[in-house]
């Protein structure tokens, strides 16, 4: 987990926007990756990222230096993502989906390298695997497999005991492997 100097945090808390931009640069791809990982929707992920950094900006004054800024931001991210995901799921259930955006997001494969195509296929497989998992399992997999958090950090972020992290991760990974198998990955399984 990346950390930020105490002085930068204090400057940002006092309203220094370039200090806050440093914090944003250090954590934005983490926040966006986690948000996209658990919501599986780029608009939801953007909304989560925006919400998280505005909450962080407002909350920095109250931030206690005993805990890590990274853990704190991960925690806000997961909690915000749950709310946005739920309201997004409601929005989608009511059929309020922007079809133009879906059309635009279909990639044009004519002028793309083999490497680029493979990368896209991998991203599509990842998307389908994660979509098959429950929100709870998804957040576990994203924090462990993509972000590389250890069990203690996961326990702090998710607000659950380490043994619960372990048992949840076991179920999440079992589900993940089953999905991968269905996707035609891991042929030997």
């Amino acid at each position: 987990m990346r950390e930020i100097a105490k002085e930068i945090i204090e400057l940002a808390a006092g309203g220094d926007i370039s200090a806050f931009e440093e914090i944003y640069k250090a954590f934005s791809s983490t926040v966006y990756t986690v948000a996209l990982g658990v919501t599986r929707d780029s608009r939801d992920a953007e909304e989560v990222t925006q919400d998280v950094f505005l909450k962080a900006f407002r909350g920095l004054k109250r931030f206690k230096f005993g805990s890590s800024l990274g853990t704190w931001i991960y925690r806000i991210t997961v909690n915000t993502a749950i709310n946005v995901y739920r309201s997004g799921a409601r929005r989608r259930a009511f059929g309020m989906v922007d079809y133009d955006e879906i059309k635009d997001s279909v990639p044009d494969l004519r002028n793309t390298s083999k490497e680029e195509i493979e990368k896209r296929h991998a991203a599509e497989s990842v998307d389908r695997i994660l979509k098959d998992l429950s929100f709870e399992h998804r957040s576990c997999i994203v924090l462990r497999e993509i972000e590389g958090l250890d069990y203690k950090e996961m326990a702090q972020v998710l607000g659950i005991p380490i043994n619960t992290v372990r048992s949840r991760l076991k179920r999440a990974r079992a589900a993940m492997v089953t999905c991968a198998k269905r996707e035609g990955l891991n042929h030997g399984l």
Binding site: E21, Y24, S28, S29, V31, Y32, T33, L36, G37, A45, E46, T49, Q50, K119, A122, A123, S125, V126, I129, L130, I141, V142, E145, I146, G148, R173, M176, V177, A180, K181, L185, N186, G188, L189
Partner: peptide, 23 residues
Amino acid sequence: EGVTSTGELLKSAARVDAPQAVW
């Protein structure tokens, strides 16, 4: 093997930068 290879696939493909518009 399945857990390791799926984990590696996720690690390699899932990291994304937030669009500039967000900042």
